[in-house]
Amino acid sequence: MTEYSGVVEVRLDINNEIKKTEIRPSETLLYVLRNRLGLTGAKPGCENGDCGACTVLIDNMPIKSCLMLAVEAVGRKILTVEGLKDAPAQKAFVEKNAFQCGYCTSGFLMVCHSLSINHPKADDKRISEWLQSNICRCTCYEEITAAAKSILSR
């Protein structure tokens, strides 16, 4: 049985690198990414699972990292916005002006990236369902939707 108590050292597979770090079992993945690993692309917009600004991919599926303990992510593949390298979603977001202040952008990008991996032919309904997980306060979502559609082979 896996067991963690007190301050423990774990190995996390993040962006195809194995990161050794000390954590406490009560720390969320969001906290560990930001405060222990310096990966601040995931944002603490609400820490309640409502806004999606902290979304990362766990085994290619979107997860709100504020609602996951870091210990839960041990042994799984974590992808954060910092792990994207010229991904189609990034280019699409730039081309479509799919952000203003940029604070929600990492989260939306990760949702779109996951969508393109898991449902490359997603229809409008599925695109909406996935994008509804996140809040953007600056745009009207039109540009984000256009960016999402542009990277799917529809």
Partner: peptide, 20 residues
């Protein structure tokens, strides 16, 4: 951030979980 500490166990056998 959760303002307190706890231990974390991840058993694979159902009886281990209950007994724990």
């Amino acid at each position: 951030m959760i303002p307190f500490d706890f231990d974390y166990y991840k058993p694979s056998a159902i009886l281990d979980a209950v007994n724990l």
